[in-house]
Write a protein that binds this DNA or RNA. Structure first.
Lengths: 261, 261
DNA sequence: CTTGCCCACTCGTCTATACGAGTATGCATC
DNA sequence: GATGCATACTCGTATAGACGAGTGGGCAAG
């Protein structure tokens, strides 16, 4: 096995770059060059202390940098590891198009099984609520809304949670207010109820997760979330649903196809 | 002025939650409640040390958490501040549609001025290169490509940098190989050259920036980047351009409109 | 063989101290 | 009044030490 010096090099005492940054640089370079691969254990804090001849806080500072960059994750009692890249779920822009509406299962389940993963849906909750200001504005200021919350998991790992909001006058006492709205999901039910869907608006943001989101999605440090808000409009131009989704950014790539004219 | 105790409360010594997390919680809550607003200075490390009766490293640990969450930014010699939310640039999905192709200025310039900001383009560079494996695959494996790099700034702040790649056999000795390709940009030139554009594919990811990206975009810690790769296809189905864009996530919201059928 | 404990190793948290470096202010000097 | 310096504040970096807590292996007892 190669010596730590050949893998990580040594510090440059003449450099004005902070020592912990030099250590982080050395580790980052070693990872980039494949000397450490996904899931590999990095040298322990003690080993790095001995190798570089610095104090433990300095080493921890360096490792903390790598974790903020999303390059490494630490596991209490085990060590610090190169962060494994999870399989990525690709969301096509036409995933809610009418022609793709499966009559049996939910879109998430169909796609996950096609990709060879085990899908789960979780923390299902259907409630009547007063809408937040933002949701209210998007739905045309209804007094109350029906909120459908759920969390999605892939092979046991939470990847996304979402809340759908519908004006209560539209959804009350319909299959939409049931935990399972039936084949084709709530979009199929909306169309059966005479709200032929015309188009969707999607807004995409990326940001660091709140502490609550870190818990719900079991996010490693250095992993942002993608925040997607989709509004569904019927043929009369009425907003009939808003779906607010927060996704673990390391589990998703969003794909859109756009006409050129 | 209110006492720190009334703003931040006190520690719960019976809690098993780490002290630095309790301090971070207190600050986060104060920010959420508006006790500290955008751009406000948080209490200095020394003040927090005195108030909570802990060591400075513990306070720094707490402040570091808030910075990782993107809630705060520190400025050497000045203090730690609630991170200001910059104005957000909204990118509509039809921004490259033919009907919007302005005959005078670049899309970025037009949009920025409409929003009342001062746009700049920077580090313009046009080069012939060997494509990376990824770019090569997207463009149908050309031996060489023309790469057009540039950085965009809004009111002096870098918000995005992008590289366009075109197969060299298509772009060599054309206006596209000039730093300024002329009115309507390279898409207008491509269409003049007989490559009528048919559609665009866009792929969106979010992740933490590399150290190089932090420098180029002058990113605060706790700010992810949005990575967008757009491929332009002509009417024959040939990929004629790939544009690789990295955006400061706190400066953008992407908006797409999708048909329902 | 299985169970259960101990121990060694890992990272997590916290204290105390020191000095460096960037910023802003006021005061003395020119 | 303008210049420049001293100073006091800010955060940045680094050391040394201590104890806690999670993990896993080995060994001894059953």
């Amino acid at each position: 096995m190669p010596s730590l010096t050949s893998v990580l090099g040594v510090l440059d005492p003449t450099s004005d770059r902070a020592v912990f940054r030099q250590i982080a640089d050395a580790l980052r370079e070693a990872i980039d060059k494949g000397r450490f691969r996904e899931g590999d254990k990095l040298p322990s804090e003690t080993e790095l202390v001995d190798h570089f001849g610095v104090s433990r806080m300095t080493v921890r500072n360096a490792l903390s940098l790598l974790q903020q960059e999303g390059l490494a994750v630490s596991e209490h009692g085990k060590g610090v590891f190169v962060r494994p890249r999870p399989p990525v779920r690709r969301l096509a822009s036409d995933r809610f198009a009418r022609r793709h509406r499966d009559q049996g299962k939910a879109a998430f389940t169909v796609e996950a099984e096609a990709a060879g993963s085990r899908p789960e849906v979780d923390s299902l909750e259907v409630k009547e609520e007063r809408p937040s200001q933002d949701i209210s504005a998007r739905l045309g200021s209804p007094r109350k809304v029906l909120a459908r919350r759920r969390r999605y998991l892939l092979d046991g790992r939470p990847v996304e949670f979402a809340t759908s909001y519908l004006p209560l006058d539209l959804a009350r006492n319909t299959p939409i207010a049931q935990p399972n709205p039936g084949p084709g999901g709530i979009y199929a039910r909306l169309e059966e109820m005479g709200h032929r869907l015309d188009h969707f608006d999607e807004e995409i943001r990326a940001r660091m997760p709140s502490p609550a989101e870190v818990r719900t999605l079991q996010l490693a440090s250095g992993v942002p979330v993608i925040h997607l808000v989709r509004t569904a409009f019927d043929a009369e131009g009425r907003a009939v649903e808003v779906c607010d989704t927060v996704m673990a950014a390391d589990a998703y790539v969003l794909a859109y196809q756009l006409p050129a004219n």
